[in-house]
């Protein structure tokens, strides 16, 4: 994997290291709950961590779109409510209504990070669980075959694409 990464110049390396250091220092302040005294250690560790991160992952990190992020957070909050309630009611229902099966979903997203984010999001949303990658397909375990699942998976994919500022082609195989 490391061989595929592009070689970067020292200026880029310095820029990325300092950018990531700033983010990590902010994270440290949050984790120390505003204790600025501990920043003596924290700043040092943040720079070390940023150096390690650039050494391991020299390429540019994927950019997020702010509007996409806001919409994604709202969508995620509402949908995880729906998902939790759905599964809780199924668990507590005396007859345990389940009709699970597996289906293959063809990615429209490309790129490693967006796909991973998509698969992880899918696992947290109602009725779907990503089970394995296979090339350009993802196997999804669904809790209820009757629901219009492919359509809702495609909707999640649209939201994740918007998060990364990607415009997807229209899905051709929505049932």
């Amino acid at each position: 994997m490391a061989d595929d990464e592009p070689r970067i110049s020292y200026v880029e390396r310095l820029g990325r290291t300092s950018m990531r250091s700033v983010v990590l220092v902010a994270l440290w302040i949050v984790l120390a709950e505003g204790d600025l005294e501990s920043l003596k250690v924290g700043a040092l560790l943040a720079v070390a961590a940023a150096t390690a991160s650039v050494a391991l992952l020299p390429g540019p990190l994927p950019r997020l779109s702010a509007w996409g992020l806001a919409r994604f957070v709202a969508f995620f909050a509402i949908q995880s409510f729906a998902g939790g309630t759905d599964v809780a009611l199924r668990a507590l229902h005396p007859r345990r209504p389940l009709d699970p099966s597996c289906l293959w979903y063809d990615f429209r997203l490309s790129g490693h990070t967006p796909r991973v984010v998509f698969a992880n999001t899918l696992s947290l949303l109602p009725g779907t669980l990503s089970a394995r990658f296979d090339g350009d397909r993802l196997e999804v375990h669904v809790l209820d075959r009757g629901a219009s699942t492919t359509r809702s998976i495609a909707q999640v994919e649209d939201r994740v694409a918007a998060l990364f500022g990607i415009v997807l082609p229209m899905s051709g195989e929505v049932e």
């Binding site: 995880s80 998902g83 759905d86 599964v87 809780a88 668990a91 947290l124 009725g127 375990h141």
Partner: peptide, 8 residues
């Protein structure tokens, strides 16, 4: 399914 959705 039960674990990831309800607990989170």
């Amino acid at each position: 399914h039960a674990l990831t959705k309800a607990d989170n």
